[in-house]
Simulated assay, not measured.
Amino acid sequence: MTDRALRYFLAVVRAGSVRAAAETLNVAASAVSRQIIELEAEVGEVLLERLPRGVVPTEAGRMVAEHAQRQADEAALLDDRLKRLRGVQQGTIRLCCGAGFVIDLVDNALAGFAEAHPGIAYQIEIGTTDGILAAVAQGEADLGLAYNPPARPDVYGIVSARQPLLAILPKGHPLVRSSGPVPLRAFATEPAVLLPPDHGVRQLLGRAEADGGFRLVPRLETSAFELHRRFVTAGMGVAFLPRFVVAAELQADLLHAAPLRDPLLTEASAHLVVRTGRRLPEGMGRLVGWLAERMVAFRATS
């Protein structure tokens, strides 16, 4: 199996179609198709299932794609080592993260890391929890930042810390001076800003609501975390977020965070994930350590 055939095949699996892969590779679609046909002949198996709107890998195709991804990772690792041998510290690190991590990531980690490692560039994509895990597993992202992700065999959490879901309250709220954790049910009649139903945090809240037999009242529903912050600081109601999302506002005494009593919400955690089995280049390994030390998301809460 030639490097070109594997590279073209992996691009097709990622893009979901030959034409889209050809555009990414900047080659003719016929050239991609020819490499796939030759690869299938060499392997002796059908590697792609042709669908009306694209292709998906067969079981054999998934095996070949995993092999192609390992080769791509090893090639990147070799390139990194050769650059270091020549005294060059450069490259691009691709991160995929939930929107709630962005301020923490940039302000508390990347700003300092970029100054210390000026030759490294970054690509940052925002995604849902499922999208983040898929991007890391498929090699489309080097590192992923996800909140309370489900377990998957093809990715693992290289760094994690418990980050309970908290009630974020405006100044002057009656529960600001509460002496202990508050049940989520206490907010059942209060106006709240909530994330959309497909968001992991909203689903976590939904499970606690179902267990308790009540429903929160969404006055505002939005995926924009900045609107969550402004909703609360304006005194319009409450929000439910982990501490790292509103760390700056809490430090500035613009908001108040109340711990929640519900076990489902107290055990949530933040994770930095990588693809299972991948050996990280030196620059990426250094970034992992930097994120673990400096991001508020990875400072375990009591």
Score class of each variant (00 low, 15 high):
Glu66Pro: 03
Gly87Cys: 12
Cys97Val: 04
Glu66Met: 01
Asp79Lys: 13
Met63Arg: 01
Asp73Lys: 01
Ala76Asp: 13
Gln89Trp: 05
Arg81Met: 13
Gln90Thr: 11
Arg62His: 07
Gly98Ile: 02
Gln69Cys: 05
Leu77Cys: 01
Val88Arg: 10
Gly91Ser: 06
Thr92Ser: 00
Gly91Asn: 01
Glu66Gly: 08
Asp80His: 12
Leu85Gly: 11
Asp80Glu: 07
Glu74Tyr: 07
Ala68Glu: 14
Ala72Gly: 13
Gln90Leu: 06
Gly100Phe: 02
Arg81Asp: 14
Leu85Lys: 10
Asp73Arg: 07
Arg70Leu: 06
Ile93Phe: 09
Leu77Tyr: 12
Arg84Glu: 15
Arg62Pro: 05
Gly98Asp: 13
Leu95His: 02
Gln69Tyr: 11
Ala72Lys: 15
Leu77Asn: 08
Gly98Leu: 02
Val64Leu: 09
Val64Lys: 01
Asp73Phe: 06
Leu85Gln: 14
Leu95Gln: 04
Met63Thr: 00
Arg70Ile: 10
Leu85Cys: 11
Gln89Asn: 00
Asp79Cys: 12
Gln89Tyr: 00
Leu95Thr: 03
Gly61Ile: 02
Ala75Asn: 12
Asp73Leu: 04
Asp73Ala: 01
Leu77Met: 05
Ala99Phe: 00
Arg81Ser: 09
Lys83Met: 05
Val88Lys: 02
Leu82Ile: 14
Gln89Thr: 00
Ala72Asp: 12
Arg81Leu: 14
Ala76Val: 04
Gln89Lys: 02
Ala65Phe: 04
Gly61Thr: 01
Gly61Trp: 03
Ala68Trp: 15
Leu77Thr: 03
Val88Met: 06
Arg84Val: 08
Gly91Thr: 11
Ala72Met: 14
Asp80Thr: 05
Ala76Leu: 14
Ala60Arg: 13
Arg86Asn: 14
Arg94Thr: 09
Ala76Ser: 11
Lys83Asn: 09
Gly87His: 08
Leu77Gly: 08
Gly98Met: 06
Arg62Asn: 05
Gly91Met: 04
Ile93Val: 03
Cys96Gln: 10
Val64Met: 00
Gly91Pro: 03
His67Cys: 14
Ile93Glu: 11
Arg81Val: 11
Ala75Arg: 12
Glu66Thr: 07
Cys96Pro: 04
Met63Glu: 01
Gln90Arg: 13
Glu74Lys: 07
Asp73Glu: 04
Ala60Asn: 08
Asp73Ile: 00
Glu74Asp: 11
Thr92Asp: 05
Gly91Cys: 02
Leu78Trp: 14
Ala72Val: 14
Leu77Lys: 07
Glu74Ala: 07
Gly100Glu: 04
Leu95Asn: 07
Gln89Ile: 01
Met63Trp: 06
Gln69His: 10
Gly100Arg: 08
Arg62Ile: 10
Ala76Trp: 09
Gln69Trp: 05
Asp73Thr: 08
Lys83Gly: 03
Gln69Ser: 03
Gly98Phe: 06
Ala60Pro: 12
Gln89Phe: 00
Leu85Val: 14
Gly100Met: 02
Leu82Thr: 12
